[in-house]
Design a binder for these strands. Sequence first.
DNA 1: AATTTAAGAGACCCACTGGTCTCCTAAATT
DNA 2: AATTTAGGAGACCAGTGGGTCTCTTAAATT
Lengths: 201, 201
Amino acid sequence: MESRTGEPRHAAAPPTRRRGRELQQAIYQATFEQLREVGYAGLTMDGVAAAARTGKAPLYRRWPDKDALLVDALRDRLPSADDIPLAGDLRSDLIAILRFLRGACAITADTALQTVKQQSEGVHAMMRERISEPTRRLILETLRAAEERGDTRPGSATPLTARVGPAMIAYQNLSAPTELTDEFVVSVVDEVLLPMLRGPA
Amino acid sequence: MESRTGEPRHAAAPPTRRRGRELQQAIYQATFEQLREVGYAGLTMDGVAAAARTGKAPLYRRWPDKDALLVDALRDRLPSADDIPLAGDLRSDLIAILRFLRGACAITADTALQTVKQQSEGVHAMMRERISEPTRRLILETLRAAEERGDTRPGSATPLTARVGPAMIAYQNLSAPTELTDEFVVSVVDEVLLPMLRGPA
DNA sequence: AATTTAAGAGACCCACTGGTCTCCTAAATT
DNA sequence: AATTTAGGAGACCAGTGGGTCTCTTAAATT
C-alpha cells in the first residue's frame, strides 16, 4: 500500500524469503499447527499458506493437492518402526513398541491424526504401511519368540493377541488423548498384556 | 413440466405424500444410506433429501442443522445398553456386552460411524453418553463381581482392564469393519479377556 | 365441504474453498 | 552485475453446499 517502489521498508517484517527445504519444513509445521487448531475439517490450503506466511502458489508448486501435502507432511514427521530399540526381552520390547505407537499418535497432540487417517485414503494407506503393519508384525514376532522361550503360555501368540496393544493405544488416543502417557503404556503392558500372555488358556 | 394443471397424472410416481413419523423414519433411513454410500465427508442435506425423496424444507423444519439431524438419526437407531441381557456369568456377560458394542458399530456397516463421531461434537457427546459410558460402567461392574466371587485374580478389575474389550471392538471396526463378526467378539473374550483376568498378576 | 397444516420440488443467496494465474521481487546462480 | 529461479501476496474463477424462501397441493382436521 504505502511503499510500492524500491524504497527500504523501515521496520516492518524482515524481508526474509525462505526457499527450498527451509520453506518446506515451515509448511509442514504450519500444516500441523492448523490441524491442531482447526482440525481436519477446518483445514484449508489458504489457512496453511497463511500460517506458513507464504502464498498458495508455492504449495501447489510442490503438491498436486491437499491430500498429497498431508501425506508428505505426516510422512516427514512420523517416526520409523525401524528405530524401535529391541532388546529381546518380552516386557521391555512390548513397552518399546507401544511407546513408538504412542509417539506416532502424539505428533498432532489430539485426535486430529485419527480423523485425517479416516478422511484421506492416501494418508490411511501411508500410515498402514509405515505404522500399523510393521508394528503388528513386530509385536507378533516378539510374542512368538517369547512363547518359544517358554516365557508365555502356549498358544498365546496370535494375530488377535498381537492387536491388543495397538488397540489400547488407539482407543485411548481417540477417547482421551491427553491421558495417553508413558505410564499408560507401561500399565497396558503390565496389567493387560503380560497377564493375558501368561494366564491360563 | 408436462402436466401442471389439475389433470390426473397417468402412471408416474404414485402421488403419495408421507407425513410426521413416517416421513421422519424415511429421512433417518436416507441418512444412513447416504452415510454408507458417500461417507460423512460427502454427506449433504440435498443428498439426504433426495435419497428420502423429499425436499430440504421438511428437513430444516425438523432440525436446525445437519448435526442435529445426525444426532437424532443415530439416537433413534442405536441400541440401548439397558437391553443387554446379563446373566451373572463372567464369560457370557462379557460376550453380551461386547456384542452390544458390535451392534452399535454395525448400524452403519462401515467406518462411517467412527468418522462421524469424531467430526461432530454433538454426535460424540451423544454416543459417549449412550454407548461408551454405560458400557464401560457395566463391564467394570461385571469384572468386580467376578473378582469378588473369586472367578478372576485379585486386582484384575480395573478401569484399564475394563477398556480392553471396547478397545478391541473399536480398533477392529476402524481397521477391518467387515471382520467385526460375532466370532471375533467371542475370540476376544476367550483369547484376550479371560486369560488376562485369570492370569498371574 | 371448508379449512388448516405441512410435504415436495426447486429456485435462490451466500460463504467458502480448491485450484489457477499474474505480478513483483528476493535469493541463488553464472 | 546480469540472469535465472522461485517465493510472497493476492486476484480470480468455478463448484459446492448450507440454509432460506416460495409456491403448489396432498393429507389431516373441523
